[in-house]
Amino acid sequence: MQESGNHRWGMVIDLNKCTGCGECVAACKVENNVAIVGAEESEMDRTMFWMDIITTHEGEYPDTEVTYFPRPCFHCDNPPCTKVCPVRATYRNDEGIVTQIFPQCIGCRYCMAACPYTVKSFNWFAPDWPEEMNSSLNPDVSVRPVGVVEKCTFCIHRLQKAKELARAEDRELREGDYLPACSESCPTDAISFGDLNDPHSEVNKLAKSLRAFRMLEELGTEPKVYYLSKVE
């Protein structure tokens, strides 16, 4: 159907621009129907984020340097999580997106244990929204049942729609047709998203910048999320 395999979706996050406001985290939670756990569960470290912000501190007070790392799934080209899945509930597709097939997952949590970035969350209980919120769930994304693992999918439902629209209009997928919610919502444009295979795309250029680095690159997981290091 769609000409798969031509794309390699990736993200570049400019740490200079990121203010740590948390808009991406909120947008992601709303877009993807990520469950809201209560205070009690949160106390037990069971909060669920597909996009999270890692905060690092350097130096002694008052000369501390705080850096915020927005952390989606890194969609590794060589993902440690998909290797260990016993039922192919998570795998890397032709366009480089590491997807989760929720109805297939048996909930063994091996992928969670294998992910060096700890990006995966588990549905310890069935997600439960206040009655009024049920109608504000995103119909494009499934509500996950109890007992399955989930994580950022680069908003793959948006890709499915964008591809379809492009084909209906009989044209190629253009840059900007497909943006995940975090990238779209970022108020400072710190998160760019696009096709790393496309030589003219913004992410391709940014990823080649001297400032670009990837998280735990030495593990050889080949993440597709780049950070642009902070410069004064």
């Binding site: 260990v84 899945c85 016993p86 297939q104 997952c105 048996i106 949590r109 109890v146 693992v149």
Partner: peptide
């Protein structure tokens, strides 16, 4: 006991991946 979805255990047979140490 450790499975979140014990009802889907059969997936290990129908969709088992021999590349996984669990298999």
């Amino acid at each position: 006991l450790d499975l979140g979805q014990p009802g889907r255990m059969w997936n290990l047979v129908t969709n088992g991946r021999l590349q996984s140490p669990l298999l």
